[in-house]
Write a protein that binds this DNA or RNA. Sequence first.
DNA 1: TGTATGCGTTATGTATACATTAGCGGGAGA
DNA 2: TCTCCCGCTAATGTATACATAACGCATACA
Lengths: 253, 253
Amino acid sequence: MKAAPEREVDRSVSQTVKAQLALRDQILSGSLRPGERISELQAVETTGASRTPVRMALVRLEEEGLLEAIPSGGFMVKAFSERDIADSIELRGTLEGLAARFAAERGVSARELEPLKECLAAIDELLRQVPISIEAFSSYVALNARFHALLTELSRSPPLVRQIDRASALPFASPSGFVMAQSALPEAQQILIIGQEHHRVVIDAIENREGARAEAVMREHARLAVRNLRLALRNRTHLDLLPALALIKTATD
Amino acid sequence: MKAAPEREVDRSVSQTVKAQLALRDQILSGSLRPGERISELQAVETTGASRTPVRMALVRLEEEGLLEAIPSGGFMVKAFSERDIADSIELRGTLEGLAARFAAERGVSARELEPLKECLAAIDELLRQVPISIEAFSSYVALNARFHALLTELSRSPPLVRQIDRASALPFASPSGFVMAQSALPEAQQILIIGQEHHRVVIDAIENREGARAEAVMREHARLAVRNLRLALRNRTHLDLLPALALIKTATD
DNA sequence: TGTATGCGTTATGTATACATTAGCGGGAGA
DNA sequence: TCTCCCGCTAATGTATACATAACGCATACA
């Protein structure tokens, strides 16, 4: 590899993955503004990888939905309207509803539900704090993500799991920043408590093999998240806490 | 570009796109068997592009869901069970249901509905033939795809449109082969007629801004397609007409 | 002064060379 | 004869060189 002596190469992960992570981070952190053209050369410098892995990373990020190909060549950071993100959340909720229905209809053993119930209990524990601390919020975010991932898996449908993963890019673009901003709002904790109730109901519905009810509650769960988003956006004073919202173009619909 | 004199390069489309189309064709036509490792060098030979565009194409096809990355490196053709494909169809129908609901709720002008009604009329014309010819079936496939695409667009939700596109990879992997096989079945035309009725209902529901009804009928439409798939699979004698089903692994669930 | 054209620079698309790793086969020793 | 280890080969990951196309700027002409 001709070993350019001055450049230290990290061999623990592939250059492609490294570049992808670095670029995604730049996008989500707002270093790269929506609509901004992303220069390969510049990306090569900031990521430390060479052009080939950088290009692979760009293609992956395009497929992921964070970048958009420019017809004349190259890529730009995609810009989203507030409604785009709201739609993405509802979209994801719809798919999760399908997953919950599949889980209920196809049947799930008590053993498989155990980790979900553990998540539930852990979240209960966190929500007991009033008001909840920032640290507890971070834990909540992780647990919530875990709960949703586990629930998705219960569908036993690899294509659905895959699709939900893809649909999560936007809604969960930067969940920590998202929820931390929410924590600054008085209504935040109430919303989390309602969300937790949804979690409880969906488990119950799956246990009792009530597919329609399981599906309905997950869709309601998503609508709650949309209300949550709009609430956060109406409180623009907290927006500096929202790196995820760097994705929202200034002129929204 | 050093212009290797013996290799004729087609400059009308990018090498990356050319490679992607060629490889997808090889996968869907069954030249590459599910589970088979796909060799870059071999792909370079068959597509005529060099390794860089071929690799970009492979990454795109992986994101598209037709290929799977091998941990140790490289890609293999993904294998699907019958249930995977059925789930993909239902998944797509669920998203289309959401699109139909969005269209109904957000309102659609008569002008926007016109092309859909034209599709409808054209399909009606085709279905008047009993039994329907293979050529008419081909036209039907194109018109049906157009109808679904137009309907999706009515949602006015770019993220949803995008997601539906992605979700269509498997269900519509090779629609022509699919439907032509159906045409060999006596029940085929009846199914198409029911499907057309669904199309009519969804338009009506959108016109009358009945979101729930619009959504419900699209989901029913997908369930019809699943029944259709199962019907085709039960008639294994026609399977040689189904290149799309090359994707189904032999040992299904 | 404004517009159009041409040239130059820069960035992307493509090709290929190089490095590394994984997989496989052969040989040797127990 | 079986197993383990070493080395080779082939294919992937990475880097970079080259060609081309696009964009911008400057200049000239209307």
